[in-house]
Amino acid sequence: MLKSFDIYNQNNILKIILALNLLLVGTGSLLYTNRLILKLEAREEQYVQLYVKAVEYLYSSSRPDADSGDLTFVTSEILQANKTIPVIYVDHNNQVLAKLNIDGLTKGLTQAEEHALLRNKMIEMGKNHPPIPVVMNDGKHGKVYYSNSDVLRQITYLPYALLAILTALGVLAYLSFSSSRRAEQNRVWVGLAKETAHQLGTPMSSLMAWVEYMRSDPDQYDGSITDEIEKDVQRLETITARFSSIGSVPTLKEENLNEVVKQFTDYLARRISTKVKMSLASQLPSDQMVKINKLLFEWVIENICKNAVDAMKGVGELRLNIVPLSQQQVAIDITDTGKGISKANMQKVFSPGFSTKKRGWGLGLTLAKRIVEEYHSGRLYVKSSEVGKGTTFRIILNAD
């Protein structure tokens, strides 16, 4: 059992380590990718600047070396070498003189459609990068609009894709750890159930033999004592049946809720401290039926009541009140006058292994919550608690 709880703590540590690693990898990757993007943007801007210089040379009306074929060839090669960066060159009248790598330009477009497309592209480009001025020898100014290449745009989305992948890995890892923990909890509960059922078998047989022996000589033994011993034996049988049912789907039957709770509280009242005043009140009709598994439901009441007695250190009041919430639901409030539950522990009381007592496995309330919520489709929670004054647990069951 203790090993199981060590596994839970180890899982928590592994979750923290995994989260830190994912955070470090994600942060490092995002920083590196961002740095790479900035370098590529700077490089593409340099290419565009070179493109602008070539445009200034070719389109200048009064360049001194206009007949220089070699230089013109080199400049043309520079212009044509741009295969990836979308650019649009406009003159001083804002008329398009050259364009390269523009998405959407097809042979089927009319002149008006092409003009509208280029204008929209220029507006879009201007939002991302300021246009670079082109200065001619005659003093007139043109502009070169440009945007990032397809490769750079794809790299820009890389951090988001990487973040999504890391998030997905983190979620999968968390679900894996959580599933592992739930499986381990189930193994703990099933193992505890089987072991307890096994250990109770021998003393139960022995007690049954003693009951028959004392009944055979009624003059020597008080009959009321044997009746109580028989109740304990029956209780052991009940406990065995309870533990044996863990791990399988229990059978729910229509039971009179008032009678079930009263029978158990009468039994429990004679076996707890005489300094604990135990009372039961019900506002339900005497024939109110609720679909429950009696053996398991009594276990819920027992766990809560025993925790309450421990919280009161054997001195105080323990009150059970059964009330209708609606035509579909009924509630059982179990109130003690014990030490109460602090706000820090309010969410932990149902966690496996949590206990404020020096002894115990810390499984009582965990099992109780599981029985109510998973087997009976109800609810079990702390309705109210005040440190030094007491606690009220509420069980809600479906009445239909």
Score class of each variant (00 low, 15 high):
residue 1 M to I: 01
residue 4 S to N: 10
residue 6 D to T: 07
residue 7 I to M: 08
residue 8 Y to A: 06
residue 12 N to A: 12
residue 13 I to F: 15
residue 13 I to T: 13
residue 15 K to T: 14
residue 17 I to W: 15
residue 18 L to A: 15
residue 18 L to C: 15
residue 21 N to G: 14
residue 28 G to R: 05
residue 30 L to N: 03
residue 38 L to C: 09
residue 42 A to F: 09
residue 54 A to L: 04
residue 56 E to I: 04
residue 60 S to Y: 03
residue 64 P to E: 10
residue 64 P to A: 03
residue 67 D to H: 09
residue 71 L to D: 03
residue 76 S to W: 11
residue 79 L to P: 07
residue 80 Q to V: 14
residue 80 Q to H: 11
residue 81 A to M: 11
residue 83 K to M: 11
residue 85 I to K: 01
residue 91 D to K: 05
residue 92 H to D: 13
residue 97 L to K: 12
residue 101 N to F: 13
residue 105 L to C: 04
residue 106 T to I: 05
residue 109 L to A: 05
residue 115 H to F: 13
residue 115 H to K: 15
residue 118 L to M: 08
residue 121 K to C: 02
residue 122 M to K: 01
residue 123 I to C: 02
residue 123 I to P: 05
residue 124 E to D: 10
residue 124 E to I: 10
residue 125 M to K: 01
residue 126 G to P: 02
residue 135 V to T: 09
residue 136 M to I: 02
residue 138 D to I: 01
residue 141 H to K: 14
residue 152 L to T: 08
residue 154 Q to D: 12
residue 158 L to M: 09
residue 159 P to Q: 05
residue 165 I to M: 13
residue 165 I to W: 11
residue 168 A to Y: 12
residue 168 A to V: 13
residue 169 L to N: 06
residue 170 G to C: 08
residue 172 L to Q: 04
residue 172 L to K: 13
residue 177 F to I: 14
residue 180 S to L: 11
residue 197 A to S: 12
residue 198 H to V: 06
residue 201 G to A: 14
residue 203 P to D: 11
residue 203 P to G: 10
residue 205 S to P: 02
residue 211 V to W: 06
residue 217 D to F: 13
residue 219 D to P: 12
residue 220 Q to F: 13
residue 222 D to R: 13
residue 222 D to M: 12
residue 223 G to P: 07
residue 228 E to F: 09
residue 231 K to Q: 15
residue 231 K to E: 15
residue 234 Q to P: 00
residue 235 R to F: 15
residue 245 S to H: 05
residue 246 I to G: 00
residue 250 P to A: 07
residue 251 T to S: 09
residue 257 L to Y: 05
residue 259 E to L: 10
residue 260 V to L: 15
residue 262 K to R: 13
residue 269 A to Q: 09
residue 270 R to M: 09
residue 275 K to W: 07
residue 277 K to P: 02
residue 278 M to S: 10
residue 281 A to S: 14
residue 283 Q to G: 07
residue 284 L to T: 03
residue 285 P to D: 14
residue 288 Q to A: 08
residue 289 M to A: 09
residue 290 V to E: 00
residue 291 K to G: 00
residue 294 K to Q: 11
residue 298 E to A: 00
residue 301 I to A: 00
residue 302 E to G: 01
residue 304 I to M: 00
residue 308 A to G: 04
residue 314 G to S: 03
residue 314 G to F: 07
residue 317 E to C: 05
residue 320 L to H: 03
residue 323 V to H: 04
residue 329 Q to T: 08
residue 336 D to G: 07
residue 337 T to C: 02
residue 341 I to M: 04
residue 347 Q to M: 11
residue 347 Q to K: 15
residue 348 K to F: 00
residue 351 S to L: 07
residue 352 P to R: 08
residue 355 S to A: 03
residue 359 R to I: 11
residue 363 L to F: 06
residue 364 G to Q: 01
residue 368 A to C: 02
residue 369 K to H: 08
residue 369 K to L: 06
residue 369 K to I: 04
residue 376 H to D: 05
residue 376 H to C: 00
residue 377 S to N: 15
residue 379 R to C: 07
residue 380 L to Q: 03
residue 380 L to D: 03
residue 381 Y to W: 06
residue 389 K to D: 07
